[in-house]
């Protein structure tokens, strides 16, 4: 996160300066907070979401474990645990294959953080939960199918 940018935002009367910067095209509106992959999170198809995180040609790997229920009664809350056994795991992304907005989260791990992330996601319909792992400049993926009885995305 850009510390200077934070301070600018905090400053009284800075709002005007920021909007001028936005108008001038110096800052993208989303970039005013922190790095956020807007193109990826706004992407409505799987290929766009995968491409935005550089996972277009990810290789399937048996060393990634995606733990999720076989059947989720409530698609609004689907617990997912991704464990990567790949040495030097740098990031784990979670993607809902058939969600209206497939890219759900992208976790960068550093300074001893292990290849393990546990969270809860929304799923619109029965589909695969895809985990994308980056390690040593290579990209891997694995998936697990979750049957959703009641969708949890919009409606």
């Amino acid at each position: 996160m850009n510390i200077l940018r934070r301070n600018v935002l905090k400053g009284a009367g800075a709002a005007g300066a920021v909007s001028v910067a936005v108008a001038a095209g110096l800052l993208k509106p989303t970039a005013a907070f922190a790095d956020w992959n807007k193109a990826g999170f706004d992407s409505k198809d799987l290929a766009g979401a995968m491409g935005s995180i550089g996972a277009g040609s990810a290789a399937a790997s048996g060393d990634i474990k995606v733990d999720a229920p076989d059947i989720a009664e409530n698609g609004a809350v689907v617990p997912v645990v991704v464990t990567s056994g790949i040495a030097g795991t740098e990031s784990i992304a979670i993607i809902g294959e058939k969600n209206a907005l497939p890219l759900i989260a992208d976790f960068k791990l550093m300074n001893g953080a292990m290849g393990y992330v546990s969270t809860r996601i929304k799923m619109g319909s029965t589909s695969n939960v895809i985990a994308v792992v980056k390690a040593g400049g290579k990209v891997y993926k694995a998936h697990k199918e979750v049957k959703v009885t009641i969708g949890g995305c919009g409606g």
Binding site: M1, T30, F33, A34, D35, W36, N37, F41, A76, V77, V78, P79, I94, G96, N99, L101, P102, L103, I104, A105, D106, F107, K108, L109, M110, N111, G112, A113, M114, Y116, V117, S118, T119, R120, I121, K122, G152, C153
Partner: peptide
């Protein structure tokens, strides 16, 4: 949109989230 975590001041996790994370989010890491 962004979740960050530090251990003794050193960054260990830097996450970007979309709206696909459930309401009242839960997160665990090691």
């Amino acid at each position: 949109t962004n979740v960050t975590a530090t251990l003794n001041g050193k960054p260990v996790l830097d996450a970007q989230w979309g709206g696909g994370i459930s309401k009242n989010p839960y997160l665990a890491f090691k």
